[in-house]
């Protein structure tokens, strides 16, 4: 596709080569799987939370569901705490766009588009910096 377009001055390689599309569709599927996994985790965690606390006042439940230190989170996940498992689901969800950007780096490298591989790396670096603020 890219070759056909090259004759049209200025509008060559329109950013939608066949390879591009394959990588993008693969990434789209990865994203969807990530969202499904996140939804399953939150539903599991929520069921556990509600089985244990379904009749407690709702506001109390939400107020008690607050902040997690990292160690409390790991401990909670290991011991089947509903809140911690929902939080794990949220983390899987937040990881999906990060994964997408990482996948784009691979895609651009395969196309030997060094400029856009570098741009994607810069975005990934900012995202990782943001994640580091959590700790």
């Amino acid at each position: 596709m890219a070759h056909q377009n090259k004759s049209r001055a200025g509008h060559s390689a329109a950013g939608h080569s066949i390879d591009d599309e394959k990588v993008e569709l693969l990434l789209g599927n990865v994203l969807r799987l990530g969202v499904i996994l996140a939804a399953l985790l939150t539903i599991t965690g929520a069921s556990m939370l509600l089985i244990a606390n379904g009749n407690r006042p709702g506001r109390q439940l939400i107020a008690g569901s607050g902040e997690f230190s990292r160690s409390a989170l790991f401990h909670g996940i290991a011991h089947g705490d509903g809140n911690a498992i929902i939080m794990l689901g949220l983390m899987v969800l937040f990881a999906t766009p990060v994964l997408r950007v990482a996948g784009m780096i691979v895609g651009f490298l395969r196309e030997r588009d060094w400029l856009y591989a570098a741009i994607s790396c810069a975005v990934l670096a900012i995202l990782i910096a943001g994640i580091c603020f959590a700790a």
């Binding site: 607050g66 949220l90 900012i126």
Partner: peptide, 18 residues
């Protein structure tokens, strides 16, 4: 996703509500 780390740190993410 860029904001998520800071939101987590400050306790803005509440599992039971989210």
């Amino acid at each position: 996703a860029a904001s998520s780390g800071i939101y987590y740190r400050h306790g803005y993410l509440n599992p039971a509500l989210d």
